[in-house]
Every structure is written in C-alpha cells, then in structure tokens.
C-alpha cells in the first residue's frame, strides 16, 4: 500500500517517523510548501520530497494520503483527494466547523474512499488500558472523570496555532483529544459548560461535559503552561478509581554531571520511552481498516461529534451558560 504525507511540520515528521515501520506500507512521497521540511521528512522514511501535491499524486499514485496540514486547510485537500479516489488519514480536528466536517465526510462516502481522523489518544497505551478497564467493569459503573492536558503554546508554521481562525484555539485543537476520549468512556454528551481565558501568552479552558447517562467529565486544557507537557486523568467509579499522571510514569531519567549549570538543566529530560509511539499504532490500525474494510476504533463520525462538542464549549464560554448538544446535532 502506497502512503503519502502532506504537511511536514511536527505531525508530518511524526507520521514520517512511523509510516515506514508498518508492514506492507510503502512510503510514497512527502509534500510540503517548504522544500527543506519536505526533504527532512522524506529522508526519514526514505521517499521523495515534493513541494506540489499535484506532482506528488502524479508521480507516486498513492493509495492513501496522510493530511498533516494546519486545520483550516484540511477541507480543501480532503475534498481534492476524495475526488481522486484516494483514502485519507487526516490529523485532528477534522475541521473547524461542523458544516465543513460533514461535507468532508459526505465527499468521502460519495467517492467510496475511507476517511480516518487522527484522534491519537485512543491509541495511547495508558488511555487504552484505562478505557479497557472501565469497559471490563474493574471500577464498577464509572461516574466522574477528570481529564487534563497542559503544554507550551505550540508554535507551528508561521504561528498558525495563535490564529484562532486557523487552529480553533485550545479547546478545538488540544482539549479535543480529551473530549473524544470522554465520549469513548461515557457515551453521548447532553450538555456542555465552559470557561476560558485567553491572552497572547496563554489559553486556558475548563470544560464540563454532562452525559445523557448523568455521568460527568471535567476537562482542563492549557496552552502556555510553564511546566513540562503534562497529561492527567482520573476516572472514578462506584467500585474503584483509575488515575494517570504523565509526570509520575517516567521510566527513564538521565542525569549528567556538568560544570555548566545551563547545560545540566538542558540534558536532564525524563522520558517514558516505548518500542512504538501511539502514532504507529494509530496508523497501523487505520491501514489495517483500509486493507480489511473494517470499522476503526475511532471514526470520522466520532471526529465530527468531538468538533460539535468543542464548538458547544466555545459557545458556552461566550454565553456564560450551559449549551445543550441538541443544538449541534
């Protein structure tokens, strides 16, 4: 199966790093408007670099294209690829509004191509383990969940994350991971309440999802966090609790003696290394779904619902009132 990558920023590099490791996948070109970036990613997976999508498609004839572009560019590319009969793996969020997301879904259906959205948290072993334990009833009926995702303000190409018209902001871009995961745990959302603070240096949001089955998930997301990238969750049930804190599961910590204080600071980065990163599992799963025609763990429909919830949260924060999800269905 020939798989191309469009967009060679942070995510494109991540895909390039993983794509060649997947059995039966032949990397088929990386495209980026910036030649250097395209070449760097292409080198990583031993394929050719392109600066034009047309050239890549004509030369490589891919079966699948991974779309790793800024969110506001997803729709046009997905529509183009779908019309050409190419399967698509697109980074999250699917789109910045529901209309675009639905159009993308419809175009893929119409042209008989598969559309997968990279809600990668479903493929993180820690999140998968917790979801499975909840499903297996290990903590009884789950009742209240806390989900947290804090990081620095992402820079991206040309600072596109700072432009809300392009990234959608911290809820749409970052917290959407936890929105999707909360749905995976509790099901459909009834109402959303949110509060947000934004400045040039930070975006911080608190969002509570009330589910149709009365369960509660409260999410916090932060761009501009002065600490290390941090994820945390707690799922409390009638008969048990599952918790995770990324700062407490660091399996490797290298400390280097150094006379240079600054250098010492820089090289002491605790890590949690694994044989494969979650993007590998995600891509391998989507490729398998294409090959076997099976249903993915996380569907384009799930991605649309996550966008709807993120939009509802934005609206709630603006109105200062809860927003019922019926308005967004």
């Amino acid at each position: 199966m020939k798989v191309s990558i469009i967009g060679a920023g942070t995510m494109g590099m991540m895909y390039a790093h993983n794509i060649a490791k997947i059995k039966g996948v032949q990397p088929a070109g990386v495209c980026d408007v910036d030649r250097e970036r395209a070449e760097r990613a292409a080198q990583l997976c031993q394929t050719s670099a392109y600066t034009s999508l047309e050239d890549l498609l004509a030369q490589e004839q891919p079966d699948v294209v991974c779309v790793c572009l800024p969110t506001h560019l997803h729709k046009d590319i997905v529509m183009t690829l779908a019309a050409k009969g190419i399967h698509i793996i697109c980074e999250k969020p699917i789109a910045l509004n529901l209309e675009d997301a639905r159009e993308m879904q419809a175009a893929c259906d119409q042209h008989g191509v598969r559309l997968f959205i990279g809600h990668v948290v479903r493929f993180f072993p820690n999140y998968r383990d917790a979801a499975q334990k909840v499903k297996d009833g290990v903590i009884g009926e789950a009742g209240v969940a806390h989900l947290k995702r804090f990081g620095s303000f992402p820079q991206g190409s040309d600072g596109w994350y700072h432009d809300r018209a392009k990234s959608g902001g911290v809820i749409m871009d970052l917290m959407i991971h936890d929105i999707d995961y909360a749905r995976a745990i509790f099901g459909e959302v009834e109402s959303v309440y949110a509060a947000i603070s934004r400045s040039d240096q930070m975006e911080y949001a608190q969002v509570t999802l009330k589910f149709k089955n009365k369960r509660i998930a409260t999410l916090s997301g932060y761009w501009g966090y002065p600490g290390p990238f941090t994820t945390e969750f707690e799922i409390a049930g009638e008969k048990g609790i599952i918790r995770f804190n990324s700062n407490e599961t660091l399996s490797l910590n290298v400390k280097v003696q150094s006379k240079d204080q600054d250098l010492g600071e820089r090289v002491q980065v605790p890590r949690s290394p694994m044989m494969y990163d979650p993007y590998y599992y995600e891509l391998a799963h989507f490729i398998q779904c294409i090959r076997e025609g099976t249903t993915p763990i996380v569907s384009a429909e799930d991605a649309c619902k996550a966008v709807a919830i993120a939009l509802a949260a934005e609206q709630s924060a603006e109105l200062g009132k809860p927003v019922n999800m019926e308005v967004f269905s």
Binding site: A195, A236, G237
Partner: peptide, 13 residues
C-alpha cells in the same frame, strides 16, 4: 473562574 469537584468518590480500595 473556577471548577470544583466535591464528590464522595473515594472507594474503599
């Protein structure tokens, strides 16, 4: 603004 969880959600375990 603030959010607070007051639940009696600590289990016997």
């Amino acid at each position: 603004f603030a959010v607070h969880d007051p639940s009696w959600s600590r289990t016997k375990s």
